[in-house]
Design a protein around this nucleic acid. Structure first.
Length: 120
DNA sequence: ACAATGACATAAG
DNA sequence: GCTTATGCCATTG
């Protein structure tokens, strides 16, 4: 656990298939309520963007903005993200929005996060 | 150490 | 609702 990025990556990895969360939620879980931007950056940057590890293991597409929509500030993989989500059974509206009431991830409990952060 | 950057968030017009 | 402005934070040059 050297950088904030890793925390983000580890946490995002815990997001179960078919569920989605938001940058803000992740930021709050990591006790940095106002680091949503950094969270987003952590995902866009994804160090060691290699095949088998980080990038492949981090379901970045399950992370949406506060509205539960795919914004991605322009383009990046918005189309891809929608496909990935739908492939997992998540309903994505045409505008790229997801019903957080049904697919929103509750998140982890504080002690689960602690355990998660403790290892690695 | 300073300035810039960025896949965000929230309030205001 | 959508657009604009401002705040926040870790990483990078």
């Amino acid at each position: 656990m050297s950088s904030f990025f890793e925390k983000v990556h580890h946490l995002v990895r815990q997001v179960p298939p078919g569920k989605v969360t938001s940058y803000g939620a992740v930021a709050r879980m990591l006790e940095h309520p106002h680091a949503a931007r950094t969270v987003g950056w952590a995902l866009h940057s994804l160090p060691s963007a290699r095949e088998g590890d980080e990038r492949g293991g981090v379901p970045w597409w399950r992370v949406l903005n506060s509205k539960g929509c795919i914004s991605l500030a322009g383009e990046h993989g918005a189309g891809l993200q929608r496909e990935l989500l739908e492939a997992e059974g998540v309903e994505v509206s045409e505008r790229g929005c997801v019903d957080l009431m049904r697919f929103g991830w509750e998140g982890l409990l504080w002690y689960e996060i602690e355990e998660l952060m403790k290892e690695e």
